[in-house]
């Protein structure tokens, strides 16, 4: 399926109204040729994973600036496993200390990005990850 666009679900979990970062990243991914399903504000981990399931997304991207990243990323990752989406990438960004990033990485969360990161690095990371993790047809 190398020719088909990468599909990414982008959302903001929880009570956090700062969506400029999510919009900038979504736009960057679109300009890189990806199909982005933008969920917007005040999502729950359940609603994000349910949307990713119906959309058959390759990637879930969360934006968390509220400080609740440990809760949200952990919960979304757990739900992904539970719903059979463990083979997809969970990535994202926000104000996330390195120590927390390491803890989350150990739980299966992918690379997380922050202020000052080059948006193109996100594109490259997603492209490489998807290339290295081809999906199998059997469900």
């Amino acid at each position: 399926m190398s020719g088909s666009p990468i599909k990414v679900v982008v959302g903001k979990p929880g009570l956090d109204g700062h969506d400029r970062g999510a919009k900038v990243v979504a736009r960057t991914l679109v300009e890189a040729g990806m199909e982005v399903v933008y969920l917007g504000l005040r999502q729950t981990p359940e609603s994000i994973v349910a949307a990713a399931l119906e959309e058959d997304a390759d990637v879930i991207g969360l934006s968390v600036l509220s400080g609740a990243h440990m809760t949200h990323f952990k919960r979304v990752r757990a739900l992904m496993e539970e719903k059979g989406l463990g083979d997809r990438l969970l990535t994202g960004g926000g104000i996330i200390p390195t120590k927390d990033q390491e803890t989350l990485a150990a739980l299966g969360v992918g690379r997380l990005f922050g202020p000052g990161d080059d948006p193109d690095a996100i594109v490259d990371y997603i492209r490489d990850w998807v290339r290295e993790h081809p999906r199998e047809d059997a469900v």
Binding site: P5, R27, E31, E35, V37, Y38, L39, Q43
Partner: peptide, 15 residues
């Protein structure tokens, strides 16, 4: 690429 925003307006029946 495509930016698909319909779910922003269709969040009442997720799940």
């Amino acid at each position: 690429g495509a930016f698909m925003g319909d779910r922003v307006r269709m969040d009442k029946f997720v799940g």
